[in-house]
């Protein structure tokens, strides 16, 4: 275990409260968030940019807050990560989803030029890559705000007021569904079931789940998302 960049965030030292042992927060902590909380790093830790062990390299974005749409996708540690990912599949095409994740991690969204670059790297046709990228909802095909706020309004959350939470986010951010707020900080979208139905309303902000969000919690949450 030694020498791992994540040592100090190893599970044994994970700050887990007995009352709320999960990663996702209860309403109480919404007022004391740090940037790392928002991005989930306080809890699960920072992954190495090169992806760590090959078995998990394709799955673990290093969550950088500042995205650079011009940054190289396939250099330095990212190049190592791609090689590790490729080593886990019988063909290059299978690495497409992880590679798109990686490209989005670096650049924030998948522009036509980025899709083309990924296609060239994996030996696929750009049209094919576009077809795949548009099939999945997690790939941003246009720039989003600094914080991507996804409010679940599917049945379980809906029964417990998901619509009201969404409306509250929109009201306080002064924006529409799918749009980015004027200050460039928040893009708010409606999302399908996040798989946290017992903790309504579930809101995914960037990579982190916020659970049991009530309409009255929204201002405090937004205030932390700077």
């Amino acid at each position: 275990m030694s020498g791992h960049p994540n040592d100090d965030l190893h599970p044994e030292s994970w700050p887990v409260a007995a009352a709320n042992p999960g990663f996702a927060g209860d309403t109480g902590e919404f007022t004391q968030l740090t940037e790392d909380d928002v991005r989930g790093l306080s809890f699960v830790g920072i992954r190495p940019k090169d992806g760590g062990h090959a078995s998990v390299a394709g799955t673990l974005p290093y969550q950088v807050a500042e995205k650079d749409p011009e940054a190289p996708i396939f250099s330095g540690p990212y190049e190592d990560r791609l090689e590790k990912v490729l080593s886990r599949y019988p063909d290059r095409q299978a690495a497409l989803l992880p590679t798109l994740h990686m490209a989005q991690e670096v650049r924030g969204f998948l522009s036509p030029a980025t899709l083309d670059e990924v296609a060239q790297k994996l030996g696929l046709s750009p049209a094919y890559v576009r077809g795949v990228a548009t099939f999945y909802t997690m790939y941003n095909l246009a720039p989003v705000g600094k914080h991507l706020i996804q409010v679940c309004t599917n049945i379980s959350c809906n029964l417990c007021g998901g619509d009201a939470v969404l409306a509250e986010f929109l009201k306080h951010a002064g924006t529409e569904v799918g749009e980015t707020s004027a200050n460039g900080l928040w893009t708010i979208i409606e999302v399908e079931c996040l798989g946290a139905c017992g903790f309504p309303t579930a809101v995914q902000i960037n990579d982190r789940y916020f659970e049991n969000v009530r309409p009255e919690d929204v201002p405090a949450v937004l205030a932390q998302l700077t």
Partner: peptide, 22 residues
């Protein structure tokens, strides 16, 4: 064997398209 067409999006939003302006 010149994969310039694809289905973009999914469900009833799905549409045949090329790679943008290609």
């Amino acid at each position: 064997q010149d994969e310039r067409l694809t289905v973009v999006q999914r469900g009833s939003r799905a549409v045949i398209d090329t790679f943008f302006e290609e």
